[in-house]
Simulated scan of single mutants.
Amino acid sequence: MTAEITIRPIQAAETHSLRHQVLWPQESIEYVKLNNDDSGRHFGAFRNGKLVSVISLFIDGRVARFRKFATRPDCQGQGIGSQLLRHVLEDAREQGAQRIWCDARAVNEAFYRAFGLEPEGNRFYRGTIPYVRMAKDL
């Protein structure tokens, strides 16, 4: 039996712990806070009332960017992140965005391709981690 997933807006501060745990556990928690967090739209996926996945959406005119997409390791591969990303793509569209992009870890490129995002430009690195910009028209 799969637990029901609920997705709802959350505050930026509610994303920090999961961002830290999943994306940059070797850094301080300050490392995962964004200067423009206050201007973003933040969403959480909850299973049994517990926050298990987070994503932050930033819209600038007709272009949207999502950042700091993190799903608890024990909840990955269960479709939770996919539900959350679908929600954010639709929210960006509803907010008037015509294009969306992210800087994806290269290891996750196939995941983003499944949502129609395609690589743009060359790989780049944050520390030792390879990234690729992924984008699509909405």
Rank of each mutant, 00 (worst) to 15 (best):
F66T: 05
A70F: 04
R113W: 10
P25I: 09
G77S: 11
R8H: 11
F66C: 05
H20V: 03
G61D: 05
Q11D: 14
Q11N: 09
K68E: 08
Y112L: 08
R93P: 02
S28P: 02
E27C: 00
G81D: 11
I59W: 06
T6S: 15
F69S: 08
Y31I: 00
I7Y: 11
F111S: 01
L57T: 07
R67D: 08
H87Y: 15
H42E: 02
H87E: 14
N35M: 03
E109V: 02
Q76I: 07
S28K: 02
G116V: 09
E118R: 15
L89P: 03
I7R: 14
I100A: 04
R123S: 13
P25F: 08
R41P: 00
G116A: 09
S28I: 01
Q83E: 15
V63P: 01
Y31F: 11
L85I: 08
W101G: 04
I7K: 11
R8D: 03
W101N: 07
R93E: 09
R19Q: 03
S82I: 02
R113E: 15
A97S: 10
I80Q: 00
R65N: 10
Q95G: 10
H16C: 04
I7C: 12
L57G: 06
E118V: 11
P9T: 06
V22K: 00
F46S: 04
T15E: 00
V63I: 13
R19G: 02
P73E: 14
I100N: 05
Y125L: 15
E94I: 10
G81E: 12
N108S: 14
F58V: 03
A45K: 01
P119T: 06
G44L: 07
F66V: 03
Q78S: 11
N35C: 01
G127T: 08
W101R: 09
E27K: 00
R99L: 10
K33E: 06
Q95F: 14
L18T: 01
H42W: 01
R72Q: 12
F124W: 09
L57D: 07
N35I: 07
I80C: 03
R41E: 11
D60W: 06
A106H: 13
Q26S: 07
C75Q: 15
Y112T: 00
V88A: 08
D91T: 14
N36F: 12
G116L: 12
G127Q: 08
G79Y: 05
R8T: 09
G127K: 09
V88I: 11
E120I: 15
R67G: 06
S28M: 01
D103I: 05
H20N: 07
P73R: 12
G40V: 01
A110V: 13
L85G: 10
T128A: 14
N122C: 08
Q83H: 13
E120P: 05
N36E: 14
R105Q: 13
